[in-house]
Design a protein around this nucleic acid. Structure first.
Lengths: 244, 244
DNA sequence: GAGTGGTCTAGACCACCAA
DNA sequence: TGGTGGTCTAGACCACTCA
C-alpha cells in the first residue's frame, strides 16, 4: 500500500517564508524602524500568492517582530520609537501616574561569566562578559537595582557613559549602537529580603521585602543575549501581568 | 464632494461573527469541553464563506476561548481537562520537578464586599460576597496562602466541602458546578513581609519576604468574577512569565 | 489617485482523525 | 472512507495614508 498518511517533514509554505523573513531581519537587510517590502512585492519575490505571504507576516506581527500600519506598510519593530517607552518593563505606579524615569550608574566593568549565567546565555563559563550595575529611578526615587550581564563579544564598547547617553534605556542603545534587537524575554519572579548593600543602594532598611525579577532577553532566532536581575521596591509600584 | 473616506462605524464581518459566537458561549449553547459546529456548518448558518468564519474562530482560538483540533473539530476551552492542570497558576518549582498539589481550607463564609474589591468586581460596595481562605500545598508543603472573594449571586452554594471535593481547583469547580468559565485574568505582583497570621499559616518566620499576587479573573465578555490575593513563599518556587 | 494593508469570496487540495 | 481543520490560490473590493 502506498499511503502517505503521515508526513513528518511537512512544513507549510508560510512557515518557510517566515523563516526567510527572519533571516533577512538577522542579516540586517531591513533595520529596526524601516519598512519591509509590500506584501505584493514579497509574493512576487518568493513566487507565492499574497495570501501566503500575508499569513507569514501575520505571525511575525503577532510576535511583535513586525508592525503593520494600514495604508502605509509593514515595519520592523523597534525599541527606539515605541509609543510605550519600555516594552519589557512591566512595573507601573500603583496610582496609575506616568513617572519620569532616570538612570544612575553604579558600575560597568569586564568580568568572567559564572556557570549559571553562562548556561542561560549559551556561552562558555569563564568567558568575558560585561557586568553592569545601575539604579533605576522613578520620579527621582530609586525603585530598581539592576544587575546586567552581557557577553563581551557582540557588546564590545558598552560603557557607563554610553549607557547614560541613552538614559539607561539599554534595549534602545543595543539596537542603535550595536545592531542587537531584542524580541523576546522570559522572567522568573520571587520575593527576597534586601541585604545591606542592596538596602544601601535603594535607600531602604535592611530586610525590606523586594520583588526579584530575573530576566533573559532574546534576539531574532531565540538567541539569548542578556541576563538581568532586578530587585524592585514595590511599595509604590507593582508588576502588572495580563493573560488568557 | 462625496468622499466616504472615513467610516467610523465600520466593523468587519468576522468581528460580528466573533461576537455571535461569544454570545452562544455565554448562553451555554456550547458547554466547555464540547465541540462547536464545523466551520462549514457555521458558514452556512451565518451565510458567509468558510474563510470569514475561520478568521473569527482563529481569534477566539488565539484568546484560548476555543481550541482547534485538526481532523476532529473545534472545542470550547475548559479548565477540566487541560493538559496543564492549572492554566492560571504560574508558580513552578525552581528545580523543574512537577509536584503534587493539595488544598487545605481555612475558612469559607459570607461577608460584605469592601470598596476596593467591589470596584474591581464591578458590584455594589457592601453587597454579599463569599470570602474564602485556603492554603495551597506543593509536595505537601504550604506555599500559597490564598484569600478569594466572589460575589454571592452566581456563586451561591460554594462551601468548604465543595472546594475540597475538587481538591482546591476553583476554576474547575466554578465551571462544572456553577457554569462559570473564566477566560482571562490580570495580576499585580509585589513583595511583602509576612505578618504574624500569615507566617503562622505558612509555617515560616514573621517578616519572611513573600510574593504577593493580586488577581482579577474574567468570564466571557470581560466580566470580572473573582478577586484573589495569594501570598507565596518563593524559596523553592518562582513565578514564570514569558513575553514578546 | 496610487499604493498599502484589511476583508471577503470560492474553490482546490492536503494532513489528520476516527470509525 | 468521510469529515474536520489547515494550506494555498486568484481575484475582487474596501479602508486608510499620503502626496
Amino acid at each position: 500500500m502506498n499511503k502517505p498518511q503521515v508526513n513528518p517533514s511537512f512544513q507549510p509554505l508560510y512557515q518557510q517564508i517566515k523563516a526567510l523573513l527572519t533571516q533577512s531581519l538577522i542579516s540586517g537587510e531591513w533595520a529596526p524602524g524601516a519598512a519591509i517590502p509590500s506584501e505584493m512585492e514579497l509574493a512576487v519575490r518568493y513566487g507565492l500568492s499574497q495570501g501566503t505571504v500575508r499569513k507569514a507576516v501575520d505571525e511575525l506581527a503577532a510576535e511583535k517582530i513586525l508592525v503593520r500600519r494600514q495604508g502605509k506598510g509593514t515595519y520592523v519593530a523597534t525599541h527606539s520609537e515605541d509609543t510605550v517607552k519600555l516594552r519589557f518593563l512591566r512595573l507601573v505606579a500603583k496610582d496609575g501616574t506616568v513617572e519620569a524615569l532616570d538612570n544612575k550608574m553604579i558600575s560597568c566593568e569586564k568580568s568572567k561569566a559564572c556557570a549559571n549565567v553562562a548556561r542561560l546565555l549559551n556561552i562558555k563559563p569563564g568567558s568575558t562578559v560585561i557586568d553592569i550595575k545601575r539604579l533605576l529611578l522613578f520620579a527621582k526615587q530609586p525603585v530598581i537595582l539592576d544587575h546586567i550581564i552581557v557577553p563581551a563579544t557582540p557588546f564590545k564598547g558598552v560603557t557607563a557613559p554610553l549607557i547614560e547617553e541613552y538614559n539607561g534605556s539599554m534595549y534602545r542603545m543595543y539596537e542603535i549602537r550595536l545592531g542587537v534587537h531584542m524580541v523576546r524575554a522570559d522572567e522568573r519572579l520571587g520575593a527576597v529580603a534586601a541585604d545591606e548593600t542592596v538596602a544601601g543602594n535603594l535607600g531602604v532598611a535592611v530586610a525590606t521585602p523586594l520583588l526579584s525579577i530575573e530576566r533573559v532577553s532574546y534576539t531574532y532566532g531565540d538567541k539569548p543575549m542578556e541576563w538581568r536581575l532586578g530587585l524592585c521596591l514595590t511599595d509604590r509600584h507593582h508588576y502588572f501581568n495580563q493573560f488568557e
